[in-house]
Simulated assay, not measured.
Amino acid sequence: MPLLDRNGSRDDRWTRSDGAAIGNIPAALVPWEALTEALAAQTPDQEIGVILPNSVPFAELAPFLARLALVAIAFPAYSDGRGFSLARQVRRAGFQGEVRANGPLIADQFAYALSSGFDTIELPEASAARQPVPQWLHARESFSATYQRGYDGAERNILDRRKAARAASGIAAE
């Protein structure tokens, strides 16, 4: 499955494991159901990532964050936005690893995914064929401002810009 980051296509260094049998895999990506066993089998030089259904409450994931290098949040459909909220919760908890959206998102959601805390998007082949990488990059640039605060360091959100403009002009905030 193609993998995108904010600059376009990139190689995936993660190897999927169907269960907790992670062996000598340097960067193992395991399903949520196998996470506890995979962490128990983890070697000191091994990184573990988890494929998380977007229906899992953040409180269930939180105890594992310190031991994870990747949280891949599954999107069963582009219209199911629970993954965006989950990504924000993961970032607000201080997670510094990679946060990946996994599923049939559409290019129009790229800027929002990045500002919600996602680093990468893994697309099904059919989605990537329908909307190639240049279309994703164009969509990312189409939005110059957002309503939510992002994690990319850029202050593009409308509310912060409005507040800064008022402060610069000497108008009191309401």
Rank of each mutant, 00 (worst) to 15 (best):
G103A: 11
F75M: 13
F95S: 09
A34F: 10
D11W: 06
T36E: 11
L114Y: 05
A126W: 08
A28F: 03
T15A: 11
P104G: 04
I106T: 00
R140N: 15
V71Y: 04
I48N: 03
G170Q: 07
D45Y: 06
A72P: 08
N24L: 10
W14T: 06
I121E: 07
P31Q: 13
A40L: 01
N7W: 06
D160H: 07
I171D: 12
G117K: 04
A113H: 00
D18L: 15
A164Q: 15
P2A: 05
P26W: 08
L29F: 07
R16L: 14
R166M: 11
L4P: 06
P134I: 14
G49D: 02
A111Y: 09
A62Y: 05
P104L: 06
A113Y: 00
A41C: 04
G83K: 06
A66M: 05
Q46E: 10
T15R: 12
A20T: 07
R156S: 04
A139F: 00
K163W: 11
A87L: 06
F84Q: 00
I158Y: 02
P134D: 12
S9K: 11
F118R: 10
F58Q: 10
P53S: 14
V50C: 09
L86V: 12
D5V: 02
N24F: 05
D160Y: 07
I25P: 06
F75S: 08
L70F: 14
L123A: 07
F118D: 15
A165Q: 07
F75K: 01
D108K: 00
G8Y: 04
G49P: 08
L114P: 02
S17K: 03
Q131N: 08
I25L: 10
H138A: 15
G83V: 08
P53C: 12
T36R: 13
S17A: 04
Q135P: 11
S17C: 13
H138W: 12
